[in-house]
């Protein structure tokens, strides 16, 4: 399926779970396509958001983002884009602890309406989240927190490889992607490469997401750029730094300019990659593959 066609599974107003974490295995090509198609009023959830969160707010694609941490990366301090959209009241950032987000996806994936956890208690993070409930354990009498299941309408997940049916193999860090795939009603996979079902069957222990969860598969090399994809490429830091400098200098005009030049004007994802530049793609690939060097 093409990026364009797969993106049509995401409709205005849907809840969307986003795979990967921070600058890793972000389904950036799919987010890029949703911006181009001018999707609106999405409610997104992700373990930790980086520049993907900026783009979703800055393009007006998402109204709200549920996450544990929202900035471009610790190297760059606060995200002026997030601050602008949240502080002026236009967009909502719903904060949960990282483990709470994980257990919300897990509850969703387990087919139960909630799970108990022991964090967030006593904090103001909990005070902001009336949808979480404290309760007394009927067995031990302890106070625990119940966090509600998250079952997104659709999940966007980027993987290293999968077959045409959606049997997906993930190298390195899996983050919350397995729970997310199980929890979501539909799953769109983007993948660095599509391999045969025979190849998947040679190493079934590597398969992390089974085909029956998956509704669409799109082959998009460098589909997490300018973020990283484990073992394939590291983040493209020159592009990231130029992006951060631009949008943090002016979260409205800087973002408008970035979106025009890097999202709306390119004819294809490959054209976007050309803007990052061959030098940087090759360096990022070299560093990415070096994780396998002894």
């Amino acid at each position: 399926m093409s990026l364009h066609d797969a993106a049509t599974l995401v409709q205005d107003g849907m809840s969307v779970g986003i795979g990967g974490s921070t600058m890793s295995r972000t389904p950036m090509a799919m987010i890029w396509e949703l911006i181009r198609q001018q999707r609106r009023h999405l409610s997104c959830a992700r373990s930790i958001v980086s520049t993907d969160g900026d783009l979703l707010f800055g393009s007006d694609v998402a109204d709200e983002i549920t996450t544990s941490w929202f900035a471009q990366g610790i190297l760059w301090g606060l995200s002026k884009v997030m601050r602008h959209h949240v502080e002026t009241g236009g967009k909502r950032f719903y904060e949960w602890s990282h483990m709470a987000i994980g257990m919300r996806f897990r509850a969703g994936g387990m087919g139960v309406p909630f799970l108990p956890i022991r964090s967030m208690l006593g904090s103001d993070v909990l005070r902001q989240r009336p949808e979480a409930k404290t309760f007394e354990c009927p067995f031990t009498g302890e106070t625990l927190l119940l966090v509600p299941a998250l079952n997104p309408d659709v999940a966007l997940i980027h993987v290293q490889r999968c077959d045409p049916y959606g049997n997906a193999q993930i190298d390195g860090l899996q983050f919350m992607d397995i729970d997310l795939a199980m929890a979501a009603d539909r799953v769109i996979l983007t993948t660095e490469r599509i391999v045969s079902n025979e190849q998947i069957r040679r190493a079934p222990d590597q398969t992390k997401i089974p085909f029956f969860c998956v509704d669409a598969v799109v082959e998009v090399p460098f589909g997490a750029a300018p973020h990283e994809c484990f073992g394939v490429y590291e983040p493209m830091m020159r592009h990231m730094e130029a992006y951060v400098a631009k949008v943090n200098a002016d979260p409205v005009e800087g973002m408008r300019d970035y979106l025009a030049r890097h999202v709306y004007e390119p004819g294809s994802w490959t054209d976007f990659l050309s803007l990052i530049g061959l030098d940087e793609l090759l360096e990022a690939s070299n560093r990415g593959r070096s994780i396998y060097n002894d």
Binding site: I48, T67, S68, W69, F70, A71, L78, S79, M82, R83, V86, E87, F93, E95, W96, S97, H98, M99, A100, R118, S119, M120, L121, G122, S123, V125
Partner: peptide, 16 residues
């Protein structure tokens, strides 16, 4: 808020 900061990440879980 005067300033919306990035949030807890895993900080709340670790400190709890």
């Amino acid at each position: 808020p005067r300033t919306r900061l990035p949030g807890t990440g895993g900080g709340n879980d670790i400190s709890s």
